[in-house]
Write a protein that binds this DNA or RNA. Structure first.
Lengths: 339, 339
DNA sequence: TTTTATATAGAAAACGTTTTCTGTTACAAC
DNA sequence: GTTGTAACAGAAAACGTTTTCTATATAAAA
């Protein structure tokens, strides 16, 4: 059973292809009698437009690419959901792509998306593929950066003030008496990872606490890596003369890995070690312990991103404004006050 | 800066459009000298194929639609991730769509996907849009059902044996002395919801425990609904002469809502009330309490689904086999043994 | 030598739409 | 009456590919 085309509708109804198209698009006067006959033929043939042909002619795909590290991260899946909902209402569909934090994969994805003629790309860049993004943006594919601006200032961006918030989170630990704070870092190439580290360092410095390179454990924004490397770190920590008393996790996924590592070592939070997290855990309230964290305003982020995306799809005067989301410090019971 | 087309490559290199296409596709002999010159022109122009035009001609979109209730549910996002990874390697991209368990929205989505000429649809149907799915499948768009087979037997399916596993889970409660077991149900239209209910009923019956209609709380597979309705139920439960001692949650999301409701009532699990869940919670091990559940073998499900999808994309002899995933009963500490 | 196959390449058709031209007709304005 | 304008309709071009035909030169087979 082959799908009917406009031509079939034309033949059945006796009107030209042009007129069928006009009925479909409603952008040109058509006698209502004509329209009715055509509608009837459409009904009869169960016709619906082939959007590939349509896209070719109109140079619009009604496709938006969403490029994130991992759709399985609730942070991104919540964003995906909201954006998909909003765009679907506007007639767009979402093409979801996972970079796995790999620069190479991101390159391939962007190239694919360009070939697919997506109208816009919403991306949380894994790497500094700045030139590619800029080229896309200039060639008519609207780009919206989320979460990580990569220092690109001429493309609209929505995300957190990672530096300041990371500093606040670190200060909270310091206020509670912690001086030896281990830092589990994110992907080297991600700007957020750097900014969070800088925020941490700034807090130390302002409080005259020396920064040690050895405080940094690489977690690459991944639960698995955070688990393994934290576990190793904790083992060594046992034999230190001045052990670390707190851990700063750079994102939500790694926090889970870190908690697992702590459990594995039979340590208790916060009695044996304190923990704070940049980014909340999903269904925080049923997790033990309740982790003190920077609670990211994901709904706001998603809403703003959606708005920016739609805006850029509609008009062509590129609005380059950045949109900094205000997150909040949420106090849990994962930090012990020490002297 | 406009994107270069084959025509531009043709003009720059001096060869015909046909030959360019052949170099691109490598399906026809081309002198290596010619090829080199053309490759050079391609490089120079930074040319890449317009896949819309390509799709129109070849009648392939290299697009696969993934239709699920909510990509934000870790169950689905894990599946999405795995399928996306696998399909990307094969040159396909994933179009993610959320039905929100709405039959109407699902209809719109399927219609859109058909217009977009997707090569295949992987769907966990929200409603019994059987005819639509069948029509799609017959018209050349491969369909793979996941999680919910909707009683459609002529379309490949991958999912759990909801009836049996639900029965096992209920029996576990019964073995621990529970007789008054509240059941939080899923979406009425979803087959899984029915099967899980039937499994629960079967277990009661085999153990000579009368089934009461009032034991059922509607949760619609949504955290929010489960929270609210369970909360109400628990309030009433306080004043019962023979209070319910256990709760059976039909899926992972609702389990979270139920735990929240229990916490809200200042009740303790399992001391005050026992809880089992069909479907595990994400990062189970850091959640308090560890919920006894049917742990769904999501990786297996995703792998098998991917395999079936690729298989159906490649050849045309529709393999209709069902693929029942074996899940496991995972014992936590959320069930109290009573006399 | 003649035939047959093979490597190579281009012209043109085709995919299913939208859009640009062109052309009627009817009717108002002068 | 002519002219101008709006409503309506179709023919044909265009979007950027792939594929089918057709054609030439060369090499292998007869």
């Amino acid at each position: 059973m082959k799908k009917a085309t406009i031509k079939d509708v034309s033949e059945l109804s006796g009107f030209s292809i042009t007129t069928i198209s006009r009925v479909l698009n409603g952008n040109y006067p058509v006698k209502s009698e004509t329209r009715n006959k055509i509608m009837q033929a459409i009904e009869e043939l169960d016709f619906s437009r082939n959007s590939t042909a349509r896209n070719l002619r109109t140079k619009k795909s009604n496709l938006v690419g969403l490029v994130v590290a991992d759709i399985n991260n609730p942070y991104y899946s919540r964003i995906a959901k909201k954006i998909d909902d909003g765009l679907f209402e506007k007639g767009y569909n979402l093409l979801v792509c996972n970079t796995d934090e790999s620069e190479k994969k991101e390159k391939r994805i962007l190239s694919t998306l360009q070939d697919k003629d997506v109208d816009a790309i919403v991306i949380s860049p894994a790497a500094k593929n700045i030139e590619i993004l800029r080229k896309l943006n200039n060639s008519g594919t609207k780009v919206v950066l989320i979460d990580r601006n990569m220092g690109i200032l001429d493309i609209p961006f929505v995300g957190s003030d990672n530096f300041s918030e990371s500093k606040i989170l670190t200060e909270y630990l310091i206020q509670n008496g912690h001086k030896k704070i281990m830092f589990v870092s994110g992907t080297d190439t991600a700007v957020t990872a750097q900014d969070r580290l800088f925020g941490y360092k700034a807090a130390l410095q302002e409080n005259n606490i020396p920064f040690e390179e050895s405080s940094i454990v690489k977690g690459y924004y991944k639960q698995e890596n955070a688990y393994e490397n934290t576990l190793e770190f904790l083992k060594e920590n046992l034999s230190r003369s001045d052990p670390y008393t707190a851990i700063f996790s750079s994102n939500n996924l790694m926090t889970i890995g870190i908690i697992q590592a702590i459990h594995k070592m039979n340590l208790k939070i916060p009695e044996d070690i304190s923990l704070v997290s940049f980014g909340q855990l999903d269904s925080q309230e049923i997790i033990d312990p309740k982790v003190t964290c920077i609670k990211q305003n994901i709904d706001q982020l998603a809403t703003d991103t959606l708005e920016k995306a739609i805006e850029s799809l509609n008009d062509n005067n590129g609005n380059i404004d950045s949109n900094i989301i205000r997150d909040s410090l949420e106090i849990g019971n994962s930090v012990k006050k020490i002297e």
